[in-house]
Amino acid sequence: MHDFALALEQGNMESFYPTLSALWRSQTSVEELNHAFSIFFEKEIQLLMIDAMQPKFDAEASIDENGVLTIEGRYDTSPSVVHFSHRYILEGTDWRLIGINVQLK
């Protein structure tokens, strides 16, 4: 989440892009990520305050039949709660991000 929040602070996904799995990078571009998260930029959403917080997990991390690790939780920020879902795949010896969903509710 820190890398995502930092990209929001910077106003584009350029610094976030290298943190993605090679598979995801082969399927998307920085420009496509900027478009996907454009609402965050338009509303000037800033999330670096979560660095000082511990996430609350909605369920235990799980690995599905395709080897995808899913982590879901939230940060109890105010006035909106930050909900997240991250999906990772194992590339070499590292778990690398293959999907992210962030919502403010």
Results as ranks from 00 to 15, higher is better:
1 M>S: 15
3 D>P: 05
3 D>V: 07
3 D>L: 12
4 F>C: 12
5 A>Y: 03
6 L>Y: 14
7 A>L: 06
9 E>G: 02
9 E>K: 11
10 Q>Y: 09
11 G>S: 08
12 N>V: 01
15 S>F: 00
16 F>L: 01
18 P>H: 05
18 P>L: 03
19 T>V: 01
20 L>A: 00
20 L>C: 00
20 L>P: 00
21 S>P: 00
22 A>R: 03
22 A>T: 06
23 L>C: 01
24 W>D: 03
25 R>G: 03
25 R>I: 00
25 R>Q: 15
27 Q>W: 00
28 T>Y: 01
28 T>W: 01
29 S>G: 09
29 S>H: 08
30 V>R: 07
30 V>L: 06
30 V>M: 07
35 H>G: 07
36 A>V: 02
36 A>N: 14
39 I>T: 14
40 F>L: 09
41 F>N: 08
41 F>K: 07
41 F>V: 05
41 F>I: 11
43 K>N: 15
44 E>R: 14
44 E>A: 13
45 I>F: 10
46 Q>G: 12
46 Q>T: 12
48 L>W: 07
50 I>H: 05
50 I>F: 05
51 D>A: 09
52 A>K: 11
53 M>Y: 09
53 M>L: 15
55 P>T: 07
57 F>H: 09
59 A>C: 05
60 E>K: 07
61 A>D: 13
61 A>Q: 11
63 I>V: 15
64 D>C: 06
64 D>P: 05
64 D>I: 01
65 E>G: 02
67 G>H: 02
70 T>C: 06
71 I>E: 11
71 I>G: 02
72 E>K: 08
72 E>T: 10
73 G>K: 04
74 R>G: 03
74 R>T: 03
74 R>N: 13
74 R>Q: 13
75 Y>W: 06
75 Y>H: 05
75 Y>K: 04
77 T>R: 12
77 T>H: 11
78 S>F: 11
78 S>I: 05
79 P>Y: 06
79 P>H: 08
80 S>F: 12
81 V>A: 12
81 V>E: 14
83 H>V: 10
83 H>M: 13
83 H>P: 03
84 F>L: 10
87 R>D: 09
87 R>A: 14
89 I>N: 07
90 L>I: 12
90 L>N: 14
91 E>S: 13
91 E>N: 13
92 G>T: 10
95 W>V: 06
97 L>Y: 08
100 I>R: 05
100 I>A: 10
102 V>F: 06
102 V>Y: 07
103 Q>G: 12
104 L>I: 07
104 L>W: 02
105 K>H: 09
105 K>P: 07
